Amino acid sequence: MNSHLPFLISVPHGGIDAIESVRSRLLLSDQDLIWYSDPLTRIIFRFENRVAAYIDTPVSRMIVDLNRPPLPVPLQDPDGIIKTKTFDNRDIYRPGEVPDLHLIHKMVLSHYFPYHQKIDEYLDPSLIQIAFDCHSMLPTGSVNQIDAGKPRPLICLGNNGDCQGDEREGTLATCSTEWIHLLAECFREEFPSEDAVTLNKPFSGGFISNAHFWRRGIPWIQIEVNRILYEPDPASPGSGTTIEERAILLRERIWSVLCLFFQRIQE
Score class of each variant (00 low, 15 high):
144 N>D: 14
30 D>Y: 08
52 A>Q: 11
134 C>W: 04
91 D>R: 07
33 L>K: 13
212 H>N: 15
235 A>N: 15
86 T>H: 10
5 L>K: 14
201 K>S: 08
112 Y>R: 06
133 D>A: 03
160 N>W: 01
87 F>R: 14
63 I>K: 13
155 I>P: 06
165 G>N: 08
218 I>R: 00
44 I>H: 09
128 I>Y: 04
209 S>L: 03
5 L>A: 13
41 T>S: 07
259 C>D: 08
45 F>P: 05
101 L>G: 03
136 S>V: 09
133 D>V: 05
17 D>T: 01
87 F>S: 01
2 N>W: 10
234 P>R: 06
267 E>R: 14
203 F>L: 12
165 G>K: 12
75 L>W: 07
258 L>I: 11
29 S>H: 15
90 R>M: 00
185 E>V: 15
129 Q>I: 05
165 G>P: 13
163 C>F: 02
32 D>P: 14
27 L>I: 13
161 G>C: 08
116 H>A: 00
102 H>R: 05
88 D>W: 14
75 L>D: 03
107 M>A: 12
240 G>N: 09
107 M>L: 15
129 Q>K: 15
217 G>T: 15
1 M>L: 11
220 W>S: 00
79 D>G: 09
202 P>I: 08
126 S>Y: 05
238 G>Y: 05
260 L>Q: 09
203 F>D: 09
204 S>H: 00
28 L>K: 11
228 I>P: 09
76 Q>L: 10
31 Q>G: 14
90 R>W: 08
127 L>Q: 11
